[in-house]
């Protein structure tokens, strides 16, 4: 049909725009150093991806692996715990009536609008007054707080946990906290995965807080590590290849997370916007 040609062309052009840079990164990371700038940028030459990976992971006693592990610890830990805390708070705001409920909700919601620098800088000063900058906790603890997660959890809890069910659980003698963990959290599960994913991406991408807090290279998350290598490329050109290969590796965990959790974000992502 003729009227399908234009839509398919637009989708094709979109696919090229979004995927060619990643294709270029994959191809570039698979080449030897000499071939990287001398061969066709969008097609393979000698396949040296595994040599490059080996060099990346061995460079300076494996500091890159350390960065990856740090990122997973900062991100995985903060997203898991942060999602639980946001879910509990949002659930309470949705399912219980108490004085100050709307006030709490509005304060939390306005937290979404606060720019990251407005927080990162005073956080640095506060942590330094406890001599706690340049530690794992100085990045981890602030990353736990996810006001947008509370907002989403409140919407999801209102939509997916019926009041009758909570009443029934109360009549059965189940305590409020037990009901949350055994009944409500299961009903909210798809939504919780969405909150987790958002939180995971936000912390994984966070750049400013580690940039301000951390001075010691061994504590860097992978984003800050790659950034610091990239700033040294002019003095140490051999780092360019490592930056490219490292960039490719740093994308992989999120792509895997997206693929595995696809059925959740595909449908859950819009729920916050519809209401």
């Amino acid at each position: 049909m003729r009227n399908r040609i234009l839509p398919m062309l637009i989708m094709g052009a979109g696919t090229l725009y979004f995927l060619v840079p990643i294709w270029w990164l994959l191809v570039g990371a698979s080449k030897t150093r000499g071939q990287f700038s001398s061969t066709e940028p969008l097609w393979f030459a000698d396949f040296a991806l595994f040599d490059n990976l080996g060099e990346l992971f061995a460079y300076r006693e494996g500091v890159f692996l350390r960065w990856l592990a740090n990122s997973l610890a900062y991100t995985g830990g903060a997203a898991l715990l942060g999602t639980l805390l946001a879910a509990m708070c949002g659930y309470a705001l949705a399912k219980y009536r108490f004085p100050g409920r709307e006030a709490i909700f509005n304060v939390v919601l306005s937290g979404v609008l606060v720019p990251a620098t407005a927080l990162a800088l005073p956080l640095f000063l506060i942590f330094s007054s406890f001599e706690a900058t340049n530690t794992f906790w100085s990045v981890f603890l602030p990353s736990l707080v996810n006001p947008f997660g509370v907002y989403l959890a409140r919407i999801y809890a209102t939509a997916s946990v019926p009041d009758e069910l909570l009443e029934a659980a109360r009549l059965d003698g189940s305590g409020e906290i037990r009901t949350f963990f055994q009944v409500s959290s299961k009903l909210m599960f798809p939504a919780l995965v969405t909150i987790f994913l958002f939180h995971f991406v936000a912390v994984w991408n966070n750049f400013l807080l580690p940039l301000i807090m951390l001075g010691e290279e061994r504590l860097f998350p992978v984003t800050l590590g790659l950034y610091s290598w990239n700033t040294q490329v002019n003095q140490a050109p051999e780092l360019r290849m490592l930056v490219l290969v490292g960039a490719l590796v740093s994308i992989v965990p999120l792509v895997i997370a997206f693929l595995l959790l696809q059925r959740f974000w595909r449908n859950g992502l819009g729920a916050g916007a519809v209401k």
């Binding site: 979109g14 696919t15 979004f18 995927l19 840079p21 990643i22 270029w24 990164l25 991406v201 994984w204 991408n205 750049f207 984003t223 800050l224 790659l226 950034y227 990239n230 930056v243 960039a247 740093s250 994308i251 999120l254 792509v255 997370a257 997206f258």
Partner: peptide
Amino acid sequence: AFFVPYAVPGVVAAIM
């Protein structure tokens, strides 16, 4: 395909 770039951290996207 359109969503994949979102998996690329801002710093890494800027370097690329």
